[in-house]
Design a binder for these strands. Structure first.
Length: 828
DNA sequence: AGCACGCCGACT
DNA sequence: GTCGGCGTGCTC
């Protein structure tokens, strides 16, 4: 920047800025800088500009020039919001790469990158922060006016405030109010992340000696026998374990909450609310000082060695091999050199213990970034990363957008997880891939960790683009579960099946229940029955939007579409032929649960799928119940495969593996394998080997064999190479085009037309549009066209350039008015 | 993303 | 006759 010595010069010079607006528009726009702001403008600062008729937006300065635009008169910047840039130049480069790579606008990237409190606009809503007491005397007149208005009306838009104050420049005032924590800025009501809290009970030290205890007991026994029970139970429990939770005490003693409450009032018990980790209590202390096992130590050294000549290393470690400890060591190493570390986790995993585990270890140096955080918290993390106060950040996919200055290492845990990919609004980025670019910008390293790596990552490791480190020993001597494959057809022949359960599974479940252990049953279909069919005419109800058969849900008594959410009443007579012989075909989690409750009436059953976890805390409640042993058998969909580290689950039953093996997706086998391996990996405890029962009609299926042999990627890739049958990624690069339109018929025509246009350039590499499956999401019908390129036959850059061209032409053609084409790049 | 402009159908 | 639906184009 030009400094004081030339201040008179800069005063006279006319400067222009190119800004990124948080909108889906294709270009950046140029604004003129008023002379008095010449010294204050800088790349990366936020400015307020008017765009269009009357709207104000927060834009980010991407460049400063001296050249006046020739074709139009530039508008002036209204104000500059920041004293120091909030976006680094590195981030601007990252945004620009991302918009190029994922074929979207920089504005869309900006939208995803900035917490909404950093991009105030006329329509942004402002409200009082209820959790915060502020001192009215400390406010100036205008701030007072705003807070008063907000105490009458719960929320105001920025335009309202402009009217209220009768002046245009209100954002700096709001910025101060926001910084003082007096107001909140919000688009949606984001729930505050709550660490799990639990009430623990300790006994008053006065009763540590036998005499006083006996005395207490004598009194209680007469007046309040329930309370006496509670004291007894406490003594019993405290002999067995270090810490006693209130819930355990209630259960053990059989006395109610009120008895314990009155004991607390009498100061016999003390209650204390504490954050609990999902680790067992015995682990929580060991965490601060741990030593790596020999295998872990070796893996760590190999990772370090690999980083010598590779920028990306895949740590392929089986479930429970203790990858987290290796991560912790790597983070320590990096923090010691003063560099920053980003630890990426898939969204769901962030509710588990890992945050607390790392917090315990690294204390306040660690920042957490999470979609469940509210905006104030997100901005706080943003600022602290910018000021280098956080050396370590733990976060979900959006944390790749934080303003890092010197990133030495990015850890991508559970690298294969699909939740790293953002689908709906652009940028449709994959945080794992973006992280690799980001690390490269900082000349940092990337560690990809997974028990079941994705094809493309494993492929890259195999061709030595990435380093590869294997960790194939479970930590702490935990044994891998035994896997038994049971043929359903065999058992049917012998008539030993009970509803959907083979005799083997029934026997194993009985053993586990007897030992007071838990069981997870996996059925990859929700609802009661996926198909309703007329026995007479074979009519099947289908979704009016999506052309898929509707699933019957018993709890609602309705037929649901699992694609778009459409519902209709389940018919009692066939709408086609009037027959009453309607049959439910197939089965889902609801039916499994239903039939199990008949077979095992005394068992505590629960179900975990999209339907039972839709409401806010229900997932947490189920997990808590599982942990507190209020559930004996949990029936669930893929959800059960993830983040159930703590459970006392020794038996896992896969009700019907075939529904997985026929997964209608081009990455079918990869997913089936991952799912089976992940579910299976959950079986067993430190002191007890687990058992997995896979029920199937096809015991010789290749994927099942691969699960048993615990090898998949090598077997598969070798096979593919030998046969040169380029059937799956990683041999492909794919561009998906989602075309959307409000009218289904128009959509068909346009998709057809677009596909043909693309065929002119790419020939039979264009797949689709495949009739007739169309999904209706919100107000749009959506249809996909896929462009598939064999690796190395065309550069993805060139392919994207052509695609962009075709789309632009397509959108200016008469035929395509009103349709939207959204490109999505899968860089396999 | 807004917003205006403009072109067609269905109302007082 | 006008009101209002949304298709289209533009915003520095």
């Amino acid at each position: 920047m030009l400094e004081f010595s030339e201040s008179t010069y800069t005063q006279r010079k006319t400067l222009f800025v190119e800004v990124i607006l948080p909108l889906a528009i294709s270009r950046n726009y140029t604004y003129r800088v008023p002379f008095e702001m010449n010294n204050a403008v800088a790349v990366g600062k936020r400015v307020v500009v008017q765009f269009g008729k009357s709207k104000l937006y927060t834009a980010v300065v991407a460049a400063i020039t001296e050249h006046a635009p020739k074709k139009y008169e530039a508008k002036y910047i209204i104000e500059i919001l920041d004293d120091n840039p909030v976006v680094t130049e590195g981030q601007l480069k990252f945004w620009s790469w991302l918009s190029e790579y994922y074929m979207c606008n920089e504005g869309e990237v900006m939208n995803a990158a900035l917490p909404s409190a950093l991009k105030l606009a006329s329509e942004t809503k402002v409200m009082l922060n209820k959790d915060f007491e502020y001192d009215k005397a400390s406010l100036n007149d205008k701030e007072y006016l705003i807070t008063e208005a907000l105490s009458i009306q719960p929320e105001l838009t920025i335009s309202d405030i402009v009217k209220l104050l009768g002046q245009k420049t209100v954002l700096p005032i709001l910025k101060t109010l926001f910084e003082k924590n007096i107001v909140n800025i919000s688009e949606e009501v984001s729930e505050r992340y709550k660490p799990r809290r639990r009430t623990y009970i300790t006994i008053n030290p006065a009763y540590h000696n036998q005499d006083s205890l006996r005395e207490l007991f004598a009194i209680l026994e007469k007046r309040a026998p329930k309370q006496a029970d509670a004291v007894l139970a406490y003594i019993k429990l405290s002999r067995q374990q270090k810490i006693v939770s209130k819930n355990e005490l209630i259960e053990e003693s059989g006395s109610g909450e009120s008895s314990i409450k009155s004991l607390i009032e009498k100061e016999v018990f003390f209650a204390e609310d504490r954050n609990v980790s999902r680790l067992g209590h015995d682990d929580s202390e060991a965490i601060n000082e741990f030593t790596l096992s020999a295998a872990q130590q070796l893996a760590l050294e190999e990772v370090n060695r690999s980083f010598g000549d590779k920028d990306v290393v895949l740590l392929h470690g089986i479930t429970s091999s203790g990858k987290t400890q290796i991560y912790i060591r790597l983070i320590e190493q990096m923090v010691a050199t003063g560099k920053q570390v980003l630890y990426l986790l898939p969204e769901i995993a962030l509710t588990t213990h890992i945050i607390e585990r790392l917090r315990m270890y690294f204390g306040s140096d660690i920042g957490v970034y999470h979609s469940r955080f509210n905006d104030n918290e997100r901005v706080e993390v943003w600022q602290k990363v910018l000021n280098n106060e956080y050396k370590v950040v733990l976060g979900a996919r959006s944390s790749v957008f934080l303003p890092f200055s010197d990133l030495g290492l990015i850890i991508v845990d559970e690298e294969h997880e699909t939740s790293y990919k953002q689908y709906d609004p652009a940028p449709r980025y994959n945080a794992r891939d973006a992280a690799i670019y980001l690390a490269n910008m900082h000349q940092g390293k990337v560690l990809l960790g997974s028990a079941t790596p994705s094809f493309e990552t494993y492929y890259n490791a195999r061709v030595h683009k990435y380093g590869l480190v294997n960790l194939s020993e479970r930590f702490g001597g935990v044994q891998l579960p035994t896997i038994e494959v049971v043929s359903i057809s065999e058992e049917l022949k012998r008539k030993t099946m009970q509803s959907h359960f083979t005799s083997v599974l029934m026997a194993d479940m009985a053993l586990a229940l007897e030992a007071k252990e838990q069981v997870i049953l996996f059925q990859n279909r929700r609802g009661y029955a996926p198909v309703l069919m007329c026995r007479v005419c074979a009519y099947t109800p289908k979704c009016i939007n999506c052309d898929v058969s509707l699933t019957y849900h018993k709890h609602s008594g309705k037929l649901h579409c699992h694609y778009c959410g459409y519902k209709e009443d389940s018919p009692s007579i066939c709408p086609a032929c009037g027959s009453t012989h309607l049959e439910y075909k197939g089965f889902g989690t609801e039916k499994v649960e239903d039939e199990l409750s008949v077979l095992l009436p005394d068992v505590k059953l629960a179900r975990m799928d999209l339907d039972t976890t839709r409401s806010r805390n229900s997932l947490q409640i189920i997990l808590n119940n599982l942990e507190e042993k209020k559930i004996d058998i949990l029936v669930g969909t893929q959800m059960v495969a993830k983040g159930l580290d703590f459970a006392d689950v020794t038996v896992i039953g896969i009700i019907n593996a075939d529904s997985l093996l026929k997964y209608p997706d081009y990455r079918a086998n990869e997913r089936s394998y991952q799912m089976l391996a992940q579910v299976s990996g959950r079986a067993g405890r430190r002191d007890k080997q687990g058992k997995v029962v896979i029920q199937t009609y096809d015991p010789n299926h290749r994927v099942i064999k691969q699960v048993i042999e615990n090898d998949y990627l090598d077997l598969y890739l070798t096979e593919m190479e030998e046969r040169k049958s380029f059937k799956y990624p990683p041999y492909y690069r794919i561009i998906n085009l989602d075309i959307k339109h409000k009218n289904a018929e128009v959509l068909y025509n346009q998709a057809e037309y677009l596909a043909n246009e693309l065929r002119k350039h790419f020939g039979d590499r264009v797949i689709g549009p495949e009739p007739p499956l169309i999904n209706r999401i919100r107000n749009y019908y959506i249809k996909s066209i896929m462009l598939k390129f064999e690796r190395d036959t065309i550069s993805i850059v060139k392919a994207k350039a052509i695609v962009r061209d075709v789309i632009t032409q397509f959108q200016t053609t008469k035929l395509s008015k009103g349709s939207i084409v959204q490109p999505d790049v899968d860089p396999y």
